[in-house]
Design a protein around this nucleic acid. Structure first.
Lengths: 270, 270
DNA sequence: TTGCTCCTCACGTCACGTGAGGTGGC
DNA sequence: TTGCTCCTCACGTCACGTGAGGTGGC
């Protein structure tokens, strides 16, 4: 039996941390004196404390540590490995963010992406619509894109790049309507498809766009691109004529971080 | 002029975040209505908001962001690059920690490092002593080690490996006394050196030790090694005879993470 | 009696998020 | 009048850290 102070010294955990772990059911004292509430730990608990300490060193939340401690030894190893994979996935994106931030700051002024324009023909799309928050969007683009390709094949094939149209603004706070669209040959109409597929026909017109690399497709870097296109449209005195969109002209999944993968485009009228 | 809501939508920052940035002097509204306290932002502040958002995406603390915003554009880029280097340094250590945790969990039982014993001769050291917290130790070992080598050279040379003796336990909470020591030839005594150098003579004896790799030298992994050596000494019914120590037999700075760099040793009597 | 250890509140930190309850302009 | 936006508290979250004030055993 170790006093709480002795246990703290052995494990180098603070008494406050130990108290918290006790309250949270993560590392409960082997014995608590009912009179003065002194906490006592067993020698064998040192190993548990070490594990908690190591996991906290990986910034694993206490709630997850508690769950992990319920598992058998094999599952524990798997759980930690999985946790660390998640962490590294997130950090991969952060590394690219860091490069991006340094690069825009180093080139002093905002790099003013080049905004170009092009005419577009009348286009018929097969689409799927969903109300989504920002985190659900990548999965939706991928999954519904795959479904729509199948639909398009049945209607004579895909005739243009996957396009994701943002019908309403999406905030962290509020969902927005996303319409994922694949061009098909003219003449296809709603009667040719079944729910949830919807046919969309957009008129011919003109659009302003800027081309971005894969690492800039993620939030919040992508906002910069939208800003620039809208600023350009307004600067010319033109008027946005339809919702903004992302046009993916290469396979997103297999692209490298610095590959150009999509255009951020805004239809406008002069 | 943009209302706070419009500005929030443009930047996708929450109104609560914007309020906080305002209070902290990081991103103050261009105008605040003195009557109803409505906050208004300028178009030009969108760019500032983007930068804050990007930096928060790197988990840069608000206090540091505020400092960064005081800087000119060149210094900003340098500041971000420096911040990111610090972050990656810390994460390097975490990556090794993750490998370590998975490995000890995967090998099921604690890996029971091999503890061995050896006899030691009477040894004379030139040393430096300091009361330090855990974070100051690596720097002290390195710097005082370099100073002591110079001293030792003047006394006939270094006769053994750099040894760091922990005279009192070190917690995050309380500093402890660390004595960094370099063996010199017998016969050197206090009269031969000037402060802050101190001469230490340890008697001949026996020590238990375990050998660890560089990645296990860091806290908290190293505690495991101390545990095992002490547990072995107690298990044999022996008695610790002097404070525990780390004996660095290769150059620490140039070692790779998986190189064996030091012994964790405890002198004992039978 | 003096130190030392241990206890229980209670509040602070960090960067917000989440209501509650109220106001002003269309 | 109804919605909508915006406001100000006030409290919650996460994993502790930091006192303040008190107790029990040597």
């Amino acid at each position: 039996m170790l006093t709480s102070g002795a246990f703290a010294a052995r494990t180098r955990l603070s008494s406050k941390a130990l108290r918290l772990y006790g309250e949270q059911g993560i590392l409960e004292p082997a014995f608590v004196d009912p009179v003065n509430r002194y906490r006592f730990y067993d020698q064998s608990q040192v190993a548990d404390a070490r594990l908690v300490q190591l996991l906290r060193g990986l910034d694993m939340p206490l709630a997850r540590i508690r769950q992990l401690l319920q598992l058998g030894p094999d599952e524990r190893a798997r759980s930690v490995a999985e946790y660390w994979r998640e962490v590294e996935d997130n950090r991969l994106g952060q590394g690219e963010l860091a490069d991006y931030v340094v690069s825009i700051l180093a080139t002093k002024r905002n790099p003013t992406m080049s905004v170009k324009t092009r005419k577009t023909e009348e286009t018929t799309y097969v689409t799927e619509v969903a109300d989504l928050g920002p985190e659900e969007i990548p999965g939706f683009i991928r999954d519904s894109g795959n479904r729509l390709i199948v639909v398009a094949e049945g209607l004579g094939g895909v005739t243009g790049p996957l396009t994701t149209i943002y019908n309403s603004p999406i905030t962290e706070e509020t969902d927005g309507q996303v319409q994922n669209a694949i061009p098909v040959k003219a003449g296809v109409d709603q009667a040719d498809v079944a729910a949830p597929t919807r046919v969309l026909v957009e008129p011919a017109g003109e659009q302003a766009f800027t081309r971005i690399t894969k690492s800039r497709v993620r939030f919040p870097q992508i906002l910069q691109a939208y800003d620039e296109v809208y600023a350009w449209v307004e600067g010319q005195g033109f008027t946005p004529a339809a919702p903004p969109r992302e046009i993916y002209f290469v396979d997103f999944a297999s692209a490298a971080p610095n590959d150009e993968v999509c255009d951020i485009a805004v239809p406008f009228t002069r």
